[in-house]
Design a binder for these strands. Sequence first.
DNA 1: TATTGTTATACTCTATAACTATA
DNA 2: TATAGTTATAGAGTATAACAATA
Lengths: 141, 141
Amino acid sequence: MRDTAAVGCSVREIRSLVVELNKRMDAHQRGRSAEFDLTPTQAKALEELGQPKTARELAAVLCCEPPNVTYVMDKLEKRGLVVREPHPQDRRAKRLVLTDAGRELRLELLRRIGSDSPLDHMSHEERVVLRDQLARALDGA
Amino acid sequence: MRDTAAVGCSVREIRSLVVELNKRMDAHQRGRSAEFDLTPTQAKALEELGQPKTARELAAVLCCEPPNVTYVMDKLEKRGLVVREPHPQDRRAKRLVLTDAGRELRLELLRRIGSDSPLDHMSHEERVVLRDQLARALDGA
DNA sequence: TATTGTTATACTCTATAACTATA
DNA sequence: TATAGTTATAGAGTATAACAATA
């Protein structure tokens, strides 16, 4: 008998589930960010700036090009959440550092995001299984 | 003792795994589509037109607005992959139907997409677990 | 000569509004 | 009057190219 791996569990089915879950988490993230008048990218940048970074480092974690970092930073700086400091070792570069207001907003944001999520109905055990299986799926580089 | 559900299995961790897997599947889909000079949306439209649909029906499955369907269909029609036929029951609507070339390309595309995937390294059992857990995650509407 | 961040610019994708032809 | 599809248009979001300052 041939392998019937696809029956009732096709790659296509899993893909649509992943896409759907991704969409739902994205919507959740977007909603929480909007509560603080932040776009999802701005919120992500704020999260990542728990430690100061150069523009290029931030571009790397945000998976975008440097001009977009400038774009995002302009808005966050205008709101007084972050400042561009000269980099101590490299005068070409800049250290992106949160202000006191930025640090505070970041913590509020993290608290808010952690306060509820699309996975709240799952038990700890279920989440562990989900995490392990997602990690397994990502094993095949 | 407090619930330590978050320890080592935070929602944030799962989210990043979902985002990453989604990204990988998206890249795979994009790559396969590009082999046929199709954008991912064009490929999705082609897939969905296994059965003829009206523009609104296609918009629904593609999760987009009708003008985008016009946009996509213009390109597919120009390539001779699909035609807009008058709808038999409703003269306002149009039946979007694949041409012979469209049907053929659709089958090639499906074969190509099915021939390999980012989940090929997983066993049937692992995929079943992943699918069930993803479905469980989506349970909480 | 290479790299950092910025500016200017363009492209893609998607959405809204106005239009036409039907219903 | 409501709906199907189209057109025109605008808005995010992201990318590339050219530039000045610095390595």
